[in-house]
Design a binder for these strands. Sequence first.
RNA 1: CGGGGUAUAGCGUAGUCCGGUUAGCGCGCCUGCUUUGGGAGCAGGAGGUCGCAGGUUCGAAUCCUGCUACCCCGACCA
Length: 490
Amino acid sequence: MAKNFSSREDNYSQWYNDIVIKADLAENSAVRGCMVIKPYGYAIWEKVQATLDKMFKETGHENAYFPIFIPKSFFNKEASHVEGFAKECAVVTHYRLKSSEDGKEIIVDEDAKLEEELIVRPTSETIIWDTYKRWIQSYRDLPVKINQWANVVRWEMRTRLFLRTTEFLWQEGHTAHETKEEAIAETEQMLEVYSNFAENFMAIPVLKGTKSPNERFAGAVETYCIEALMQDGKALQAGTSHFLGQNFAKAFDVKYLSKENKLDYVWATSWGVSTRLMGALIMSHSDDKGLVLPPKLAPIQVIIVPIYKTKEQLDQITEKVLKIKKAMEDKGISVKYDDRDTQKPGWKFNEYEFKGVPIRLAIGPRDMENGTIELARRDTLEKEIYQIADIENKVKNLLEKIQSNLYERALSFREEKTFYIDTWDEFKERVEKGGFIYAHWDGTSETEQKIKDETKATIRTIPLEGKKEEGKCIYSGKPSSQRVVFAKAY
RNA sequence: CGGGGUAUAGCGUAGUCCGGUUAGCGCGCCUGCUUUGGGAGCAGGAGGUCGCAGGUUCGAAUCCUGCUACCCCGACCA
């Protein structure tokens, strides 16, 4: 039993916060809206990074790094882009401090005012496209396929650990192509990478689709996204991939000369996922006993806890455990042996339980006599006694099973919470209860806005998959060519 | 930025209305002994500018004024 732990039913957001804090993932910092990511939380993020980074490189991308500061004037160049971000930018105006007259405090030196203010990047399209202008002259320079791992700042009104912080970590891919078709193919490919990562590593089923114009990225021609459903029935945008058309090439004058000696603007994409994925991960699988991690992203996959009375018993157990640990590590499993004498076994059980470690092995004098070991699964909370012989293979198989079980569990949850709704009254009622709602929409921004105003539900995505049946808009009754997915969102 | 609230030890809190010895309690922390198969027990101990600045008073965590920070609900958003 975890102490001081809120339940999901009791208070969902409190439950979420408790997990982040008590599982030692992150905490609030001295700076409003900015978090400290603690070692255990950061270790998960590093796994996310390592996995995605490999996928990006396998699809032909290279990493690079661009400045955190962007000259203010760059934001003027793409009209809808500036409109989208202007209201949440941190601005650097000075470059020096000095002591106040009375010498008691440090103040901004007004003499050190910047000629042109610098914007702390909310996203890097502008500085990157300004750079691409110098990199690209010919079709021989294309495509350019760059990814950057970085921090960005968006001055949001209200923040929540991992889900929305003023500063957050992410990756942003920025590519330049000869043709529209190639750029769209890139956008779609990266959407596939994201959904593959979400489903196969995070064990989170996602809907793939495009955004309505209202929800589209500022400056994009088309925004693709993956949407996940959280346990409280709210949707979470887990990743986006944008087809930017020639908007940024035109804004930053990036042209190339084709084989046919024709000058044309290049075609662009950008795509990103952030530390928000950590929020999705936490909310998708965790329970009232704490965090539950999918084995593929768990910093510790197996924790081993010794149970003993005497030093001699501990020594014997340790000798045995080190062999088991080595055998498991040889199978690529990450194992921690917690032989600290400062905490009792029960304390450790609880500790690793709310930190979401997928498998716990406990071994004591009884096991030493019988050649057994106790194994506890975090996902189902089942405990079972196993023979020690060949335990490494049993554990390996079980880790795979836990990984797929978490996915299946999240998938059936989503299916239970997916509804096809055809009347406005039913729609309003359903929105309140949460879940994905497939409903017809007349395709206009006005209707989408009215639905949002009346119910707080937004179009999460226009799904790429599934049958395209015609119908009548749930709100206006006008004709619709396919159902779109509505939900309240984070 | 609008509405509401809070600020006391590392964390959580009592005390504030109605001013009065040394600011109390739980968790955590330190020492010792006993313990160890689901968050151990006992004994002893350390730790406080009561958010900040002023004021009233013989006396302020408590009353008054100003300020600051944070939290919740909205508008904004990955």
